[in-house]
Amino acid sequence: MLLEVKDLRAVVRPEEDEGEAKEIIKGLSLSLDRGEVHAIMGPNGSGKSTLSHVLAGKPGYEVTDGEVLFDGENLLELEPEERAAKGLFLAMQYPVEIPGVPYMQFLKVALNSQRKLRGEDELSTPDFMRLVREKAQALGISMDMLKRPVNVGFSGGEKKRMEVLQMAVLEPKLCVLDEIDSGLDIDALKVVAEGVNALRGPRRGFLVITHYQRLLDYIEPDHVHIMANGRIIRSGGPELAHELEREGYAAFVEDAA
């Protein structure tokens, strides 16, 4: 199994020692294997983004119970960069702007840091350039964009497309896509989905987090989970997404309550 989440509970750690810790993930289980695409759908506030943050190790959350195994290994003990090196990739809903750091440098440091952590040789600059050029071309990304600082001044669509480029270059085992459709018009969505689909394969898993069924027309999942109030309340095949689209979240959430 590529990813196993067992009875996971997580809270948002409050700043300093102010206030109560708020529980967001309330006993969530999920198994995902190589070659599979799972979709997690849920209303706002259901905890889906938090799940992606906890998987990637974002500071500010605390796991209070349960476990997460990634390729059989305890994921929760690892630093964010170690998780990345192991092959976990979180495509973020809001990719962060980093002024002063050129995209190309960022990508190269990321790839070579991961390789180093994995005990592999670093890629030489020419090899790296070749790799990026090839992947960028496939996604219709100009090399000029890679000279600019990371995400600074990029449109929403460009940012997401660059996230896909990162996936293509870093070749993770599991891609967690956190609302990759947010802020995209239909054309941009198609481009991003095509990029994602090109990366699908028997050795790679996807966890697609979204609010809307629309995305799943373009990235077709094998399994669909509906999340509400920090738990998965129903799982099924692709048909579940359509059912949800027809009946709305309210019906499901009520059933579960």
């Binding site: 500071p59 998780r83 990345a84 973020m92 990719p95 962060v96 440091v109 990321a110 990371v150 870093l170």
Partner: peptide
């Protein structure tokens, strides 16, 4: 910026390097 730091780390860059 914590967000920037996390973004870099989530891409595999060590905390120190980031």
């Amino acid at each position: 910026d914590e967000e920037q730091l996390f973004y870099l780390r989530a891409r595999g860059v060590t905390a120190r390097r980031a």
